[in-house]
């Protein structure tokens, strides 16, 4: 995809180039096979301005260098997918964006993550407050063992939002769950199906009015139908929120994302395995004309 128009591009010292292009990745039907859609012929409109700018992000767990040298930007109001083989550190990188790694004993994060213009990794930033603004949805649905309503109200109370019935309804409507649960808001969250639980977790995240929603393999524990429902929801949410989604499912990344970051694993001399960022680009570019041979190997199914 050498014709890519990239007006804002600067010559960074990182080998990784950042492409901000193409809106909602062509309706979700793009197959992962390379070459299905040869490179863009027209100048693609750029995505919104970056909300996150990661610079040389690295994570250590004790002596284990889990992730190193991630430099990329995350456009606002778009879906960025982090893909790569398991163990490549994509979830670890994601968890830097709302400082969840602070909670892991022995975890150390280096580099910079600019949110707007401020480094959110800075020690004088309040991580608790930050997490209220940057929501997160996890791999396995993790509703609290409370009622559906209590699950939603929990986050609101924590963030000082008055938990009104309207807000509860709105969050459930936005998460496309309202019609299914409106008659049983007092029911236990565990009584819902897996897909419903995950949408409840999304509603719970929306209810606190975040600016960004991080999703860590949100569909990996769900069946295909529930997965499609969540994907539709993600595309709708991207109109209002910035989404960063970790997935190991390339078809999913192709269906939903505007921008794709491919991470991979490098063995180090000490036998450690460290996650690195191989390539970032628009979904179309990554899946049709990957520049990095590792990306190509992965998406054509030769690796991973």
């Amino acid at each position: 995809m050498t014709t890519n128009v990239d007006p804002e591009k600067t010559a960074k010292d990182s080998p990784i180039e950042i492409h901000l292009a193409t809106g909602a990745a062509d309706g979700g039907a793009s197959p992962p096979a390379a070459g299905a859609q040869p490179g863009a012929t027209s100048a693609e409109p750029s995505l919104g301005p970056p909300i996150f700018r990661l610079h040389d992000l690295g994570v250590w767990y004790g002596n284990h260098h889990a992730v190193k040298g991630v430099t990329m930007e995350v456009p606002k109001n778009a879906i960025t997918a982090l893909i790569g083989p398991s163990g490549c550190g994509k979830s670890t990188a994601l968890r830097c964006l709302n400082r969840m790694n602070d909670l892991i004993p022995g975890a150390r994060v280096e580099g910079r993550v600019l949110f707007g213009d401020e480094d959110l990794l800075s020690s004088d930033v309040d991580p608790v407050d930050l997490r209220g603004r940057i929501g997160m949805v996890f791999q396995k649905p993790n509703p609290f063992p409370k009622s559906i309503k209590d699950n939603l109200e929990f986050g609101m109370k924590v963030n000082g939002i008055k938990p009104t019935a309207e807000r509860v309804e709105q969050a459930l409507v936005d998460a496309a769950l309202w019609d299914e649960v409106k008659d049983r808001l007092k029911a236990e969250a565990f009584s819902l199906s897996g897909g419903q639980q995950q949408r409840l977790c999304i509603a719970r995240a929306i209810a606190v009015e975040p600016e960004v929603i991080l999703m860590d393999e949100p569909c990996s524990a769900l069946d295909p139908i529930a997965t499609l429902a969540i994907e539709d929801l993600m595309k709708k949410l991207a109109e209002r929120y910035t989404l960063v989604v970790v997935t190991h499912n390339m078809q999913q990344a192709a269906r939903i994302s505007d921008q794709v970051a491919f991470m991979t694993v490098e063995g180090t001399a000490e036998g450690n395995r460290t996650g690195v960022l191989a390539e970032v680009g628009t979904a179309r570019q990554i899946f049709s004309a990957p520049k990095d041979p590792r990306t190509e190997a992965y998406i054509t199914g030769r690796v991973g």
Partner: peptide, 18 residues
């Protein structure tokens, strides 16, 4: 000017640790 990095999206400032 063209070679400048893209302007960051404007967001509310981050709350200081309290």
């Amino acid at each position: 000017p063209p070679p400048q990095p893209p302007a960051a999206a404007t967001v509310r400032p981050l709350a200081k640790k309290r």
